[in-house]
Design a protein around this nucleic acid. Structure first.
Lengths: 346, 346
DNA sequence: TTGAAAGCGCTAACAG
DNA sequence: CTGTTAGCGCTTTCAA
């Protein structure tokens, strides 16, 4: 005989709860739904809640979703989950979505932009109520697609050139100003930039910010080399090109930390030392760059806040259709560590 | 007049496709479903596929899910998404799930184990077909919960003490043997271990592996200090305790890379140098530990493979109920870098 | 090989 | 305040 007085083993349906309470299923639905609970007599509602509780009843979100057209699922398109830069954003997203009763469905591009369309379609087919895109390029056809499908969407850490979709970003222009001003303050007058891909907003804007800051500071000798991807290998290649110039730059500002890591590689490969011969500044402040040799001076962006804000914007857009697509911008902060120093004499 | 010849703007339903093809909805369903397509006359099926395509029809997964009881959603419970150790596992999971037409719904514990039950219930309510748990402790009530709910579940990078659920792990015992043998080979005879939390399988097994390897190697002087969490701060505290011993260990094996980072901190705080005074070995080989100062010698575990295998096991369990819960184990590999050297003389 | 009919579990009019 | 009714879009017997 069964001595098992514990939790029920099979999910209860609303009908079963209704029968146990001797009321109609719709009454149970109303009692358990915050928005409609006040329509039910307090004592009845209490009874229903208690019975639902002992039965371990949890509304079937799939069925509710079919009926209401709302799944409480948010699709998140990640550029490459295994890249340590993304997780903090995802963490912020998941946190805020969770607070509001939503959950993140994550699809990973794995660095292959061609799959984007397919993944978005899949997420839509799965019934997501909205989309967070951390992947889009400056003129990305996927944006048209989202607009056509009339699915609420927000960009995070990326922006559309024409601002057709709301976006949540760090102030890249300001970030680069911080980096350049720091180097100029140290005495650098020959500064190179490793730009990110020009079809990404971060690549284009940071380059633009770099150039503006260079002009503002009156620096005459500057150079830009563009990386085709945000990878350590591309960073190294671009840095090698920068270091091959004569006279050699005394400082390199990289468009992100991975590229800065590549710059470290290039400096070592050239028989030079950082920061003695060449200073390096990164961007993003991804985890543990404070443990590098040397610890990386970098522009910290508020990744977790980006994620949280993207979630908020999106959920707003889902409940109250937005009057206007707007951009939310967070201020970056320069974190000075050991990879920057005065330029070598001479 | 509308000059818009582009993609339709609203999702088509199966009924609309059926009408456009002048067949019954169920025929469309059969034609579009791989398992039933052979029931349909080839020419009819072709016509249906082509019409569905021009209409941009995508089956509504929510409706299909309600009918079939399958959502093609897999819940993933992460210990802490922003921790760089987890993303590679998640990447592997997402990859394999995607290949098989599933998608990952990610919930983040944010390091707070108390939320686990609630999150699992939420994922179940969302209709996930199965669960991947990267969070469970050795005797975790959540396992009972999954068993009771009869929801297929797989543990990844963690194991249940009683093996009630299938798990996919790295061979922690072997990993520690690799680390200890390496140090002994270098000449170390006083070796300390920073153990992970004893209620996690990695913490307990790696400690066990350490102790076994110490005995096997005939090392007489060993010590273990336990960290209460896999954090840099806990690693530092435990390493400080180890370094306070007399005689001082000449090498420290940490149960994971974050703890090893803490050991770096402790060594620096004690006015010592790694590897000149104290060698350090980590575990996991998380991204960019090769860039640390010094580059970390560590036991590499096959994170991406763990994720992929967990997905495979789970999907198998969903389609064919498993005869027996089994454990899948991957071999780790020692990556020798700059944080280990011969012990100091004396 | 195709159509008809039923129903997954829930919620939202509409009545009362 | 509560019950009745209908239906979200799909799949799957069953029958033809």
């Amino acid at each position: 005989m069964k001595a098992d007085a514990s939790r029920p083993t099979k999910r209860a349906t609303i009908k079963e709860v209704a029968e146990a309470c001797d009321v109609h299923p719709s009454t149970v639905s109303r009692a358990l739904n915050a928005a409609t609970a006040r329509l039910i007599a307090p004592d009845v509602a209490a009874r229903i809640r208690s019975v639902a509780d002992t039965l371990g009843y949890r509304p079937n979100a799939v069925a509710a979703g079919l009926r209401t057209g709302r799944s409480r699922l948010i699709g998140v398109l990640a550029p490459d989950i295994s890249d340590p830069g993304f997780p903090p954003i995802l963490g912020g997203l998941a946190e805020e979505l969770g607070r509001q009763g939503y959950v993140a469905v994550v699809a990973d591009l794995e660095g292959d932009g061609a799959r984007q369309r397919e993944l978005v379609d899949r997420l839509i087919a799965q019934g997501v109520d909205g989309l967070v895109l951390a992947t889009v390029r400056l003129d990305d056809p996927i944006i048209r697609r989202c607009l056509d499908a009339r699915i609420p969407a927000v960009l995070v850490n990326r922006a559309d050139r024409r601002g057709r979709l709301a976006s949540v970003v760090s102030d890249d222009i300001k970030g680069m100003a911080l980096a350049v001003e720091h180097l100029v303050g140290l005495g650098h007058r020959r500064i190179g930039h490793i730009a990110g891909p020009s079809d990404l907003s971060t690549g284009a804007l940071r380059r633009q910010g770099f150039e503006a800051a260079i002009v503002a500071a009156g620096v005459e000798d500057s150079a830009v080399e563009t990386a085709r991807a945000y990878t350590r290998a591309e960073g190294k290649a671009a840095a090698m090109r920068l270091l091959a110039r004569a006279p050699r730059p005394t400082a390199i500002v990289a468009a992100n930390d991975l590229l800065a890591l590549g710059a470290y590689d290039a400096i070592a490969a050239s028989g030079l030392a950082c920061p003695q011969h060449v200073s390096v500044v990164g961007h993003n402040d991804m985890p543990y760059v404070d443990m590098l040799a040397p610890p990386l001076t970098t522009v910290r962006i508020r990744q977790r806040d980006l994620g949280r804000a993207a979630a908020s914007r999106l959920l707003e857009a889902i409940t109250a259709p937005p009057k206007r697509k707007q951009q939310t911008m967070f201020d970056p902060q320069l974190i000075v560590r050991g990879s920057t120093a005065k330029p070598p004499r001479g």
